[in-house]
Amino acid sequence: MRLRASGPARIFSLPRAGRKKYLFISAASGITPSLAMTTYLYDRGTDIDVTFVHCAQRPQDIIARQRLEQMASRVPSIRLVFIVEQDDPYRVWTGLRGRLNQLMIGLIAGDYLEREVYCCGPEPFMDAVREMLIALGFDMARYHQESFGAPVRKEDQLPQHDDVIPDEEAAASIAFARSAVKASCTQTDTVLAVARGAGIVIPSGCTFGVCGTCKVRKTAGNVHMVHNGGISEEDIAEGYILACCSKPIGAVALDL
């Protein structure tokens, strides 16, 4: 059998010089480039500061787990975090469970704003990671991802992402219909903060998109909402949002 292979394009790769702090985020077989880059840093023997986050269906699905644990056991500045959705039968799992969310990113890497982020995995997974980082105020110029699509040779051939990034200088407004109140704001203000400033009471709890206490119905306009499980897809389809983690994009009206 003959196979045609081409060399790396060096687009999704580490810089040749300079010490940086890295956050590698991967899922499924997307662990491959993160594993290669971590191995390179380990073999080079220079200062290493890597937080390695990998998401899998079960612990048994974590690729190269022993190799990663071996490197981390010898270099304390390589920090491994595995997140699984299900346990292995008849084996105890003491790590994180569920799906990666904003809360986990903050707990795993409290200094994520200082890190260079490399992400690889299925497209929906990478879309979700980008949404989380944008909502957390991360500088997306320091975000890099590797898609499973056709290979590209130049950076201008990379696919363009239609991400919604709230602009702190862009004007927005929220109309509270039943209260006959309209408040001006910017795209980086949350609906909850604007409501409080306008004297509108919205019950709230966690203020991080988990508890669902601040659920309100949007009747017009668009918001950028990145929640952490506090609202169902059915509620979203019916126009509901979580005020604590929703930011108005332009003019928005609420049933309040």
Score class of each variant (00 low, 15 high):
residue 1 M to P: 12
residue 6 S to P: 00
residue 8 P to S: 14
residue 9 A to Q: 12
residue 9 A to P: 08
residue 11 I to Y: 01
residue 11 I to M: 10
residue 17 A to F: 13
residue 18 G to C: 04
residue 23 L to S: 00
residue 24 F to K: 04
residue 25 I to Q: 06
residue 26 S to M: 06
residue 27 A to N: 06
residue 31 I to A: 07
residue 36 A to G: 03
residue 37 M to E: 05
residue 37 M to F: 14
residue 38 T to Y: 08
residue 38 T to K: 01
residue 40 Y to M: 11
residue 41 L to E: 11
residue 42 Y to K: 09
residue 42 Y to R: 10
residue 43 D to M: 13
residue 44 R to C: 13
residue 45 G to S: 07
residue 46 T to C: 11
residue 47 D to F: 12
residue 48 I to V: 15
residue 49 D to G: 01
residue 49 D to R: 01
residue 51 T to G: 06
residue 52 F to Y: 13
residue 53 V to D: 07
residue 55 C to H: 07
residue 55 C to A: 14
residue 56 A to Q: 12
residue 56 A to N: 15
residue 60 Q to L: 12
residue 60 Q to S: 15
residue 60 Q to K: 15
residue 62 I to R: 12
residue 65 R to Y: 03
residue 66 Q to F: 01
residue 76 P to R: 10
residue 78 I to A: 04
residue 78 I to Y: 07
residue 80 L to C: 12
residue 81 V to M: 03
residue 87 D to G: 00
residue 88 D to A: 12
residue 89 P to Y: 10
residue 90 Y to D: 15
residue 91 R to M: 13
residue 92 V to G: 00
residue 95 G to F: 01
residue 95 G to A: 01
residue 97 R to L: 08
residue 97 R to T: 10
residue 98 G to F: 05
residue 100 L to H: 06
residue 102 Q to G: 15
residue 102 Q to M: 15
residue 103 L to W: 02
residue 107 L to Y: 09
residue 110 G to A: 11
residue 111 D to T: 02
residue 114 E to I: 04
residue 117 V to T: 12
residue 119 C to I: 04
residue 120 C to P: 08
residue 120 C to Y: 08
residue 123 E to Q: 13
residue 123 E to A: 14
residue 123 E to S: 12
residue 126 M to I: 13
residue 127 D to I: 11
residue 130 R to W: 07
residue 132 M to F: 11
residue 134 I to L: 05
residue 137 G to P: 01
residue 139 D to G: 05
residue 140 M to R: 05
residue 140 M to C: 03
residue 143 Y to D: 03
residue 144 H to Q: 01
residue 147 S to D: 10
residue 149 G to R: 06
residue 149 G to T: 08
residue 150 A to P: 09
residue 150 A to K: 13
residue 153 R to N: 08
residue 156 D to C: 07
residue 157 Q to A: 09
residue 157 Q to I: 04
residue 166 P to D: 03
residue 167 D to T: 03
residue 168 E to I: 05
residue 170 A to D: 02
residue 176 F to P: 00
residue 176 F to G: 03
residue 181 V to S: 04
residue 181 V to Q: 04
residue 182 K to F: 00
residue 182 K to H: 02
residue 184 S to Q: 13
residue 185 C to K: 07
residue 187 Q to T: 11
residue 188 T to D: 10
residue 189 D to M: 02
residue 192 L to D: 00
residue 192 L to M: 05
residue 195 A to S: 08
residue 196 R to N: 13
residue 196 R to F: 05
residue 197 G to H: 02
residue 198 A to K: 07
residue 198 A to Q: 07
residue 200 I to A: 06
residue 200 I to T: 05
residue 202 I to P: 09
residue 205 G to Q: 07
residue 206 C to M: 02
residue 208 F to Y: 10
residue 208 F to S: 15
residue 210 V to E: 14
residue 212 G to N: 04
residue 214 C to G: 03
residue 218 K to I: 08
residue 222 N to S: 14
residue 222 N to K: 15
residue 228 N to P: 09
residue 230 G to E: 11
residue 231 I to M: 11
residue 233 E to A: 15
residue 233 E to S: 15
residue 235 D to C: 03
residue 235 D to A: 13
residue 241 I to M: 09
residue 243 A to H: 04
residue 244 C to V: 11
residue 247 K to G: 00
residue 250 G to I: 00
residue 252 V to Q: 08
residue 253 A to K: 12
residue 255 D to P: 00
residue 256 L to W: 01
